[in-house]
Design a protein around this nucleic acid. Structure first.
Lengths: 207, 207
DNA sequence: ATTATCTATAGATCTATAGATAATGC
DNA sequence: ATTATCTATAGATCTATAGATAATGC
């Protein structure tokens, strides 16, 4: 269309929408071309293979998914306050990108061989920040402010409870006829409950 | 092979393994036939369509997945003890059927239109037991034994934390080279942590 | 001259079915 | 006679590429 938003970008954009909706294998380069308004050969001209195109998109989404937990905030608020904010920020990100959990789960399991190098890469890149968070958490535990729990378990708990409602959304929308407003309301409630559950679950036992 | 274990069963069995591993769309009837040791036409002879064959398997797996939470145990143990046992039993089921979470998430999202009638069916079938559990939980809350939480949120929390590790297993196995024994150990630890997290998360606040 | 876009097509799938043949049950 | 199994194939994909043409930049 216009100069800056050229066909290459258009294809990338359309591919992203389709891959997020259906995953890698259910989207054909023909579908992408059709949506982008060009012919199918052009998709290959710009990205050579469907796999190439997908990798780019997947990597971006996966990085986005983990972003909240791969950045350190140096505010002077207490640990639990900052943790609460991180949980909420992660959930809010998912509200804006509802298909991300599906994309990651689906493609990581199906094409584990191909995607896993990427995961390891991201893992290595963020080791430092992970250790920092780990150190902070264990310190809080030692002080008796938080019950003993491994950093990995805590992060897994947060992520799992944050993502699950997005797996259920398609069902809620079609099967129980929730409209957009009801869904929005439900998501806010769920976010609140996840924060509540996590914060309650890490209270020290003797308290 | 032998008489009872006829080719129809053989096809069903092989289809199940393949669908669990790759989901609906990445398995062809040719793949199934090959694995079952017959030709591709026979798969259609017995099950007419690939969709038919899949539906049968999916329904069985989904029912199995929810089984623990759709049965009432009438032991006289306290509520929290019974809840703890249910969480563990659900996790143990997943240990024995590791691909179930993937199958459900993948297919419910991708083919929501087709699968959702099934979900509604199961939902209706188990309304009674759900209400019974709900009633019990709210009673415990009133007594002050459990912090206020909706039955649905509690169940969602349990299921989400139980399933997530099974999404991560392929990565752990290949990327970090965990062997079977290490995985088994890790799963036991995770089960323990989920129970701990849930039980801690429902402690009443003033306690 | 170079880059973007198109048409056409090869080659590899995949599902479903028609119609032939082999196995089984009475 | 009926049921199980096979071979062959129609018709619909899908990816990737070759080669032609249109658009753009100097």
């Amino acid at each position: 269309m216009n100069k800056d938003n050229n066909m290459e970008q258009q294809i990338l954009q359309c591919a992203e929408e389709l891959f997020l909706e259906k995953g890698f294998s259910l989207v054909s380069t023909t579908d992408i071309a059709k949506k982008a308004g060009c012919n199918q050969a052009l998709v290959h001209y710009y990205f050579r293979t469907k796999e190439n195109l997908f990798q780019q998109i997947f990597q971006a989404k996966f990085t986005k998914f983990l972003y909240i937990f791969t950045t350190f905030d140096d505010s002077d608020e207490p640990f639990t306050t900052r943790l609460r904010k991180k949980i909420e920020a992660h959930f809010d990100l998912l509200i804006e990108n509802r298909q991300i959990p599906f994309l990651i789960v689906n493609e990581l399991i199906l094409n584990e061989e191909r995607r896993s190098a990427l995961v390891k890469n991201i893992y290595n890149k963020n080791l430092e920040i992970y250790r920092r968070f780990d150190h902070e958490l264990q310190e809080e535990i030692q002080k008796g402010n938080i019950r003993p729990i491994s950093t990995l378990d805590l992060l897994i708990n947060i992520v799992s409870m944050n993502i699950i409602i997005f797996f259920m959304l398609p069902l809620l929308e079609s099967q129980f006829n929730f409209d957009d407003e009801e869904i929005a309301e439900l998501l806010q409630q769920r976010k609140h409950e996840v924060v509540e559950t996590i914060m309650c679950s890490i209270r020290p036992k003797n308290k």
